[in-house]
Design a protein around this nucleic acid. Structure first.
Lengths: 210, 210
DNA sequence: TAACTTACTGACCGGATAGTCATTAAATTA
DNA sequence: TAATTTAATGACTATCCGGTCAGTAAGTTA
């Protein structure tokens, strides 16, 4: 007959990523404040005490989740921009596609809404996210816009502000899905949403000489 | 000499709105979950017990705040649309202007972020907000877009999806201000942001025949 | 296989807070 | 002004959860 005793394994290497994975899921489901560390530990198959062996505090765990999930994707976007040679519109399209495939269609999709929801109550984490994700993401879009304006492909507009207008619909799509999304029966198709956004942008940004 | 005894006044009529006003401020500052009812009561100049004379629960107070703050503005937008006679672009511009003056520049500006942050943990309130604010707001924009497409002023696009792309930057502007906004030293100027958004939209939506 | 190291456990502590209720006193009525 | 009604109070309860730490046992070394 099977023993009920919960056999205790020592797996020092695997624990941290198992814990951040469990935390990601719960943070996205319930938010940071509403997630109990006991539940994170349970989902990762360890006790709460073990969690504290690997992370100093709940906030440190949060930071680790952000770091592990988002920063590699930003770096990838930077690589795409660095080796791109086509039009600025194409570059914007590629960056968007990468974002969508690496974030929008994965379990990390919930992080933007998580950050928006918790930023005020955890300013240190917000600052970290801003410096390492948002700032760099905005810089990517800004560089693409500047390239397009320099070549005449786009008309001249204020760069900083245009960056925000370009990014906003993409962020809102994810924020929406993880907040009010449950209220709507028929969710809009993300692919169509992104296509329309790019289409509006293409015509909206278009330089007059084209 | 002045007595320190906190004189107790009976003001049955004034209490509810004073309490919702205090709650609005605190909810926007700290979020729903992180706001203590004791503090709401203190700010309204009463005790916590008094708060429970007027609202059954913390959630009921939340709902009252939403109802009092947002629904009148939606109704006003509906009135604007009903009596509008100019172009569809003009109508969009007017709706945007009304939203900005009645929400964006007031203390209610924090509500969209508040709803996004709390929707998942308070589905009943989220549902209420969706039915009474979002649904009606979207319908307004949808009607303006349809009018423009019917007249040839706008090219034909999927209405539901376009609504979202049109609204997203406006919501993000407020959501940003009340979340990550503190991380950025130089906030973008909202008026310029809205102007660029409308400008991109005007050219992006433009029908080919114009 | 005995001694040792350390990953892991879970009972526990302290502080916080939503909601309750017996009591107090302001206003009203007789 | 005495009796009555009810707005307002604040101490209290029950619960929840982040973080701690003394103890346990898995794995390693000699």
């Amino acid at each position: 007959m099977p023993t009920k005793a919960p056999l205790r394994k020592r797996r020092k290497e695997a624990r941290p990523s198992e814990l951040t994975a469990a935390a990601l899921g719960l943070f996205v489901e319930k938010g940071f404040a509403a997630t109990r560390l006991e539940e994170v530990a349970l989902r990762a198959g360890v006790s709460k005490g073990t969690l504290y062996l690997y992370f100093d505090s709940k906030e440190a765990l949060f930071k680790a989740v952000i770091q592990e999930g988002m920063m590699p994707v930003v770096a990838e976007g930077e690589a795409i921009a660095a080796r791109h040679e086509g039009s600025a519109t194409d570059l914007l399209q590629r960056l968007l596609e990468n974002w969508w495939v690496r974030i929008g269609e994965t379990e990390y999709a919930g992080i933007p809404k998580l950050m928006v929801a918790e930023a005020r109550n955890f300013p240190e984490v917000a600052q970290f996210y801003y410096e390492n994700v948002i700032r760099r993401g905005r810089a990517l879009v800004g560089a693409a816009l500047e390239r397009g304006m320099a070549s005449g492909e786009f008309r001249r507009m204020d760069i900083e502000t245009t960056i925000e207008v370009v990014i906003a619909p993409i962020l809102m799509l994810l924020i929406w899905r993880f907040s009010m999304g449950a209220c709507q029966s028929n969710q809009a198709d993300p692919r169509q949403y992104l296509a329309i956004h790019m289409d509006l942008l293409r015509q909206g940004l278009q330089g007059s000489r084209v």
